[in-house]
């Protein structure tokens, strides 16, 4: 669904894995951007109905971009930068992520 602009020049390629599939990203990319450019579809499914969700705000507000990074759930993909070797998975359903009521 996204592509780079023609003048996008970034330092060295970084490789990460999404659901086990290798993805090449660029240093400085947000994890959300790296996944959006690969067209991965849903980032997470909701705890209530299992509906698919993906980034909405890109600024840390909506929490629709939650993924599991290196086994740690509840990571906001729009607030995390890509690191070489990152293992990323979709966050499925509940993961003990509540607000504070």
């Amino acid at each position: 669904m996204f592509r780079r602009t023609s003048d996008a020049i970034r330092p060295a390629g970084i490789s990460i894995h999404f659901e086990g599939r290798p993805i090449v990203a660029q240093a400085g990319d947000s994890l959300a951007a790296a996944l959006l450019i690969e067209d991965v579809g849903a980032f997470r499914s909701t705890p209530v109905s299992g509906a698919p969700r993906a980034p909405y705000c890109m600024m840390g507000v909506c929490f629709e971009c939650l993924v599991e990074v290196d086994g740690v759930p509840n990571q906001q993909a729009c607030m995390v930068q890509v690191r070489d070797g990152m293992q990323v998975r979709r966050q499925r359903g509940p993961a003990g992520m509540d607000g504070n009521g």
Partner: peptide
């Protein structure tokens, strides 16, 4: 509005500024 692919204008501007991304289609 909850479907993947629906984003705010602000989100798309951030993708353009910070990550040099524009929609393919």
């Amino acid at each position: 509005w909850t479907l993947p692919g629906v984003m705010t204008v602000g989100a798309l501007q951030i993708l353009l500024k910070a990550d040099a991304l524009v929609p393919r289609v």
